[in-house]
Every structure is written in C-alpha cells, then in structure tokens.
Design a protein around this nucleic acid. Structure first.
Lengths: 108, 108
DNA sequence: GAACATGTTCGTAGTTTTACGAACAACGAA
DNA sequence: TTCGTTGTTCGTAAAACTACGAACATGTTC
C-alpha cells in the first residue's frame, strides 16, 4: 500500500526539526553553538528544568545527531556534532531557500 | 522556581520546528512552497495517508502559522502564510548563521 | 428532494513526549 | 572504606502525537 512515500531529505529534515521542536533543546543548541563545547552542569545551570529532564533532552539531541558527548570524569562534555550540524544547516537552508544553498532542491 | 525561562525567539523557533517535525508536514510545505497555493485534494494526492490525517497535519501547520486555508466551495485552497513564513525563515537563518541574517538585527 | 463531491470533525487506539524524584554508576578525595 | 560530585537511568504519570474509519457539514447537480 506504500506507493508514495517521503524523500530521504524530507525524512532527515523532519528528524532534525523534531529535535529542535522544544524550547529547552533550542536553548541547549544555542548555548553549545556559542561555547563550542561545555559540560552538562553548565547547560543544566541555564535551564529551568531538572537534571533528569536535561539529560533526556541531551539524549534526544544526540540521537538526532546534532550533538555529541564524551565523558571527562567526573564530568561530561557536550559539543555540537559538526558534521551533522553542517548537513542540517544545508537542509534547512535549502528548505527556506537561503543563499547558502545554490541548488533548487535540497543540497547534499 | 521559575527564574530562568526561554527567550521569545527560542519559543517561536521551537514552535515552527515542531510543526516541521513530521515528514508529511515537510512534504506539504515543500509542495505548497512550490505551487504557491493549491487544493486539499492535490495535497492528499501526493501523500500516503488518509484524508483525515492530512486534514490533521494541515490544521497543525495552520496553528503554527505557516499556512492558511480558505474555502472555495466545494474545495479548500491552502497557501503559505507569507508573513509568518518570512518570520520563520529569518529565525532559522539566524539560528544556523546563514548569510541572510546579519548579526543581531534581522536581515532583509 | 436525493445523490454526489469535498473536506472537516469525532471517537478511538496505540505510541511518543515531557517531566520529575529516586535510585544508581563511576570516580576522586578524605 | 566512606563520602561527595557528576550525570545517567528507572519508574511513573499526564499530556500530546499519529493514524484511521465513520459520521458529519456544505454546497452542487440531477
């Protein structure tokens, strides 16, 4: 029954968008994009939610590929995942028709 | 305990992102952005989901402000909401640091 | 009026999201 | 060993999301 589906780019764009679909996660991404990298505690400090919830949001962003985390005992350092960040950036640019993207369709 | 919250832009960006967080809605926006305007039936035709579900997705996009619909008996014409589309475009451009947006002041 | 065409809304079901406290894991320090 | 710090994971609960068929609303046509 599945003769029409979504393109790979549509699926990927939606996946990234979903990850950005919560103010806390936007705040986290904003924060990380500015600092390049930082610790869990720094992120938790600027958010109005519990550690457990912050951890959950970070997991969501990690699963979407937008960030990555590595243990630096006893802390955990989180960073933007540059590779996927660039991919997402191009997908959104293409979607909105921003000049960063030359092609008429999504870039690759 | 509510001393830290999210900025208005973070809330708005998250709201738009959430609306884009499903492949069907990305497909709808893609379709509308290309055609400028079209009927419900045209949209339903290119999606692998039922009328009821398409209608639900359209409602979601309408509530997010990205599209608008008007009855043109016996059909319903859907269009991009240009005003909010431009706002969303700028918010995303600013978020990703795309050239359309110059520093703190909004682009254009 | 009866039949049709186009979409929306209702009711339902299963899944996912969001949030929290409590418990846990890992490790360095006392 | 015991304590303290840093985060994650577990368990739970309420809300929201996704999807569908059935029923409905509206206006056109026969």
């Amino acid at each position: 029954m599945r003769e029409k589906a979504y393109t790979a780019d549509q699926e990927r764009l939606a996946r990234f968008a979903r990850a950005m679909g919560h103010p806390a996660r936007i705040a986290i991404l904003d924060f990380l994009a500015r600092q390049e990298c930082c610790f869990f505690g720094d992120i938790h400090e600027v958010l109005p939610i519990s550690k457990a919830t912050v951890s959950q949001h970070l997991k969501e962003l990690k699963e979407a590929g937008l960030i990555q985390g590595e243990i630096e005992t006893p802390k955990v350092r989180y960073c933007i995942n540059q590779e996927n960040w660039a991919i997402a950036s191009r997908l959104f640019a293409a979607f909105w028709g921003h000049p960063i993207c030359k092609k008429e369709s999504y870039c690759e």
